[in-house]
Deep mutational scan, measured.
Amino acid sequence: ARCQGVVCAMKEAFGFIERGDVVKEIFFHYSEFKGDLETLQPGDDVEFTIKDRNGKEVATDVRLLPQGTVI
C-alpha cells in the first residue's frame, strides 16, 4: 500500500517524512527517491511504500506529489 506524507527533514544522505496517516516520522535514504534530488526540499508532498528493515520501518520508492496533495 502506498502512503503519503510531507518531507520534514533532510540530511547529508537521508531524510525524514512526516506521515499523513499517523503522527510519526519515517526515515528514507536518498537512493529511494525516484526523481531529481536537487529539487526535493522540506515541505514537499511525497508518496512512498513502507518496508521493514531490521525491525525498523523505512520509506522506499519515494515519489514527489503535486503540492497540496497531502492535507
Rank of each mutant, 00 (worst) to 15 (best):
F48W: 11
S31E: 08
C8R: 15
V23H: 15
G15Q: 02
C3L: 15
T60H: 05
C3M: 15
R19E: 04
N54G: 15
V6Y: 08
C3A: 14
A13E: 12
Q41S: 11
P42F: 05
I17L: 03
V46M: 00
N54C: 15
G20A: 14
E25S: 13
K51W: 05
L40M: 03
C8N: 09
G43Q: 01
G15M: 03
L65R: 09
D52V: 11
K56P: 04
F14R: 03
F33I: 02
L37G: 04
A59N: 01
V46W: 00
I17R: 01
V58D: 06
V6Q: 14
I17S: 00
G43M: 04
G20H: 08
I26Y: 11
F48R: 00
D61S: 05
F48S: 01
P42Q: 14
V58E: 09
R19G: 08
V7D: 00
D21F: 04
E47A: 10
P42T: 13
V70C: 14
E25C: 08
I17A: 02
C8A: 15
K11M: 10
V58R: 08
E12T: 12
E38M: 09
E32I: 00
G35N: 05
G68C: 06
I17V: 04
E12Q: 07
M10Y: 01
N54F: 11
R19I: 09
H29E: 13
R63C: 13
T60N: 05
T60K: 04
R63D: 07
A59R: 00
K24N: 06
K34R: 12
R63H: 11
K51F: 08
D21W: 03
V22F: 11
R2D: 08
R2A: 06
F33A: 01
V23T: 11
Q41V: 10
C3R: 14
P42K: 08
H29S: 11
F28Y: 01
T39C: 12
K34A: 10
Q4L: 07
K24Q: 06
S31W: 04
D61A: 04
C8T: 15
E12N: 11
K51S: 11
V70M: 13
F27C: 08
V7S: 03
C8L: 13
L40C: 03
T69A: 11
R53P: 06
F48G: 01
E38T: 14
V7F: 04
D44S: 08
F33R: 02
N54V: 05
N54H: 14
V70Q: 14
T39L: 08
V7Q: 01
L64F: 07
F27K: 10
V23G: 13
Y30W: 01
G55R: 05
E38Y: 08
K34D: 11
E38V: 08
G35P: 01
R2E: 04
Y30M: 06
D36P: 09
L65F: 13
M10K: 06
V46N: 01
I50T: 06
K56T: 12
A59Q: 01
E18F: 06
D45T: 12
L64D: 15
G55C: 11
G20W: 06
R2C: 06
T60F: 03
I26L: 09
R2L: 06
V46A: 01
G20I: 11
R2G: 09
I71R: 15
F28I: 00
V62H: 02
E38A: 13
L64W: 02
A9W: 07
E57D: 11
V46C: 04
F33S: 02
I71F: 10
C3D: 15
K11Q: 09
D52R: 14
V7Y: 03
G68N: 04
V46E: 01
S31F: 05
T69E: 14
A13Y: 11
K51Y: 08
E25D: 11
E47N: 04
E12D: 14
A13V: 08
A9P: 02
F14G: 13
D61W: 03
G5M: 02
A9N: 06
K56V: 12
A59V: 03
T69I: 09
V58P: 03
F16D: 02
D44H: 11
A13M: 09
K11G: 04
D21M: 09
R2F: 08
F14S: 07
E25L: 10
S31T: 12
F16H: 09
N54S: 15
V22T: 11
Q41F: 05
R53Q: 08
D52F: 07
V62T: 01
V70K: 13
P42V: 15
G43I: 00
L40W: 00
N54E: 08
E18M: 15
K56E: 13
G55E: 06
F14T: 07
G43N: 05
F33M: 03
L40V: 06
G5R: 01
R53I: 12
A59M: 00
K11R: 06
V7T: 01
V23D: 14
C3E: 15
C8K: 15
G68L: 07
V22P: 13
L65W: 04
T69R: 11
F28R: 03
A13L: 09
G15Y: 01
R53K: 13
C3T: 15
T60M: 06
Y30K: 12
A9K: 05
D44Q: 13
F14D: 09
T39H: 13
V23E: 15
T49I: 11
Q4W: 06
K11F: 08
V58I: 10
G35V: 02
R19S: 08
A13N: 13
I71D: 15
G20Q: 14
L64R: 10
K11D: 03
F16A: 08
F14W: 13
R19V: 10
R63P: 00
L40I: 04
G15E: 00
D44Y: 07
A1D: 15
T39D: 11
N54M: 12
K11V: 03
G35F: 02
F16P: 00
E25I: 10
G20M: 09
Y30H: 07
G5N: 02
P42H: 05
F33T: 02
G5C: 03
V7L: 04
A1T: 08
K51N: 08
V23C: 11
T49H: 06
F28M: 04
G15W: 00
P42Y: 11
I26V: 07
T69C: 13
D36T: 11
L65T: 14
R53T: 12
A9T: 05
L65A: 13
K56S: 13
L64H: 10
I26K: 02
D21T: 08
A1H: 14
R63A: 11
M10A: 01
G20V: 11
C3V: 15
D36V: 08
F16V: 09
V46L: 00
A1E: 11
K51L: 09
I26N: 01
K24P: 06
E47D: 12
C8P: 03
R53N: 15
H29V: 05
D44F: 08
I50N: 02
L65M: 10
G35I: 00
E25A: 12
I71T: 14
K24M: 09
R19W: 08
F27T: 13
V70R: 14
E12M: 04
R63S: 10
V58W: 09
K11L: 08
I17K: 00
D44V: 12
N54Q: 05
D61M: 03
D21V: 07
T69G: 11
D21H: 09
F33W: 03
A9H: 07
N54Y: 04
